[in-house]
Amino acid sequence: MNPLAPRERLLGVLGKKLVDRPPVICTGGMMNAAIVEVMQKTGLTLPEAHFSGAKMAALAEAVSEHTGFENIGVPFCMTVEAELFGSRIDHGTLACEPKIQTEAFTSLTKVKISPGAARAGRAVVVAEAVDRLSRKRPDFPVVATLTGPVSVAASIVDPVTFLKELRTRREDAHRVLGEVTAVLAEYAGALVAAGATVIAVGDPTSTVEILGPQLFQEYAVRYLNDLIGAIHALAAPVIVHICGRLGNGTRLLPGLISDAISVDAMVSLKRLKADAPALVTMGNLSTYLLQWGPPDKIAERAVELVRDGVNIIAPACGLSTSTTLASITAMTRAVKEGPS
């Protein structure tokens, strides 16, 4: 088989087709590879690239080139959506990712969402970056990452109150999550229209560990599926990343209708594959190992993941910005060379 172009390979895997080898990617968003070393080498830096489509595109392309990841991923944070809904964001520094400073609302009961939210702010910047990248690099999959409904809701309402109100204010919770999901679907639509090959959804607050299986099913699975369904209607594939331990929530994963599921480092993808053979799996090279481990160990682990039949090789979670290029390229090279 001739080596596939990165775009074909990723789309092939997501379409459950047989490909020459698993792609090695890093989606962007909470899992982005805009490390300090790349920024210093290229002079393309954060936080500036959070605010300009041209700068975001240039940095994303440079990240892909230097790291060897077989996709181009935007944006470089998971605060774009919360900002659309009015939360105050600390946009961080070159080495530190943006974070929520103050949520827009104190309670789910007070949430009001303006209908034009998806067409404003940095949503426009990300769409512009996607547009530039998809024109410039037709051979590469452009992965645009969204923050999932539960995590967005927990970033616009004080998270402690939010978590309690998932139980005590169910009606409000469903109303807000429905409205948030609708805005996210519209934003995803703009990204697909701009040329995004794949939409990835990272939903770090919506974990089985935090919510428990019952609330995970009631809120996370339901609204993730609503969002994925809306994106599927535009004929774009979706990858979902679920953080944390799964425990007895593992059985809920096949209920997600995404085209691939990515999990954290502590989850055994080998076992997940055995339990649910139909799942397309992505992951899950420990970001701790990536940050601290010697390159040969990193390469070894990457090859092990390939051997275990993981469909897409990727970091397990958010990368530290102090991770070195030597470590990341050890990972990407090992996957490309394959098991000896």
Partner: peptide, 8 residues
């Protein structure tokens, strides 16, 4: 119990 329950 999970985090929401513990908080309440």
């Amino acid at each position: 119990y999970f985090i929401p329950e513990l908080l309440i």
